[in-house]
Amino acid sequence: MIRYVIGKLGEAIVAVWGVVTIVFFVTRLLGDPAALLLPVGASAEQLDAFRAALGLDQPLWQQYLSFLAQAVQGDFGQSFVFNRPAITVVLERMPATITLAVTAMVFGVLIGGGAGAIAATQRGKFAEFAVMTLALLGQATPVFWLGIMLILFFAVDLGWLPTGGYGSLAHLVLPAFTLAVFVSASIARLLRSSLLDSMKEDYVRTAQAKGLPPGQVFVWHALRNALIPVVTMVGILSGELLGGSVVTETVFAWPGVGRLIVQAIESKDFPVVQAGVAVIATVYVSINFLVDLLYGVLDPRIRRKGQ
């Protein structure tokens, strides 16, 4: 067991290192912070002096080595734009991102799961049609469109909720709903189709034939197996939301990490980009690890083989 955990941890470190290394070289290939940070009119010499002060005049491999040496201690350097440690800049945005992601996921999974289950069990009835139409709308509606419409209606016309910003529960409602719509649409569609598949399986039919109560058959046999792709999707979507949902954050002025990283890419704030992707990579690795563990719970045969 300890070997297993160490192995997983090793893999995680390799993945994070991979991401950070790729991003290190890509950002440096793509641009130059000097022209963006100095006032317009700065001379070529001033730009050069500025680059030198940030250490950007060093050979690339040397920059990389000193970056790695710092990064292993959790230090991603000073942000060029914010003038403070990059990792702090990223981490202080995480609570907002986590709040939004968790709320949206919880509601998205509950609504999407319920809707998917209804659609699968009410095959050919009106309920299925209604649920699937809504799911389709949810997945094909652009997030910014939905967001702005919600703002115009609930914040401007009715005045029930704030138009945007961060701080109270009321601020959370609209952005979380916007994201939950998208999440629940994906989950409803996936769960319905995989439930339809698993309900046709022999072991479910056998259980039905044995005269087990339909509820029990549904939950213990059909649903458990159908959940595997759904759990995977939940993992992917959670990772995506925890990495920051740029459009939603922008429309609702939500101070999350997604907007921060886009801003950092735009302003060529290398330390913040690196710290940001390192954090996001860690999130993804952990989530996917959890998902793998869940597979074993849902289908014991996977656990036996997996370890």
């Binding site: 914040a155 138009t163 945007g164 910003g165 002025a253 101070p255």
Partner: peptide
């Protein structure tokens, strides 16, 4: 000073009296 990046949202915030 509030940071509202989207112009449509800034207008909404103004019209909502925020």
């Amino acid at each position: 000073f509030r940071n509202i990046p989207e112009s449509a949202s800034r207008v909404a915030a103004l019209l909502a009296g925020e």
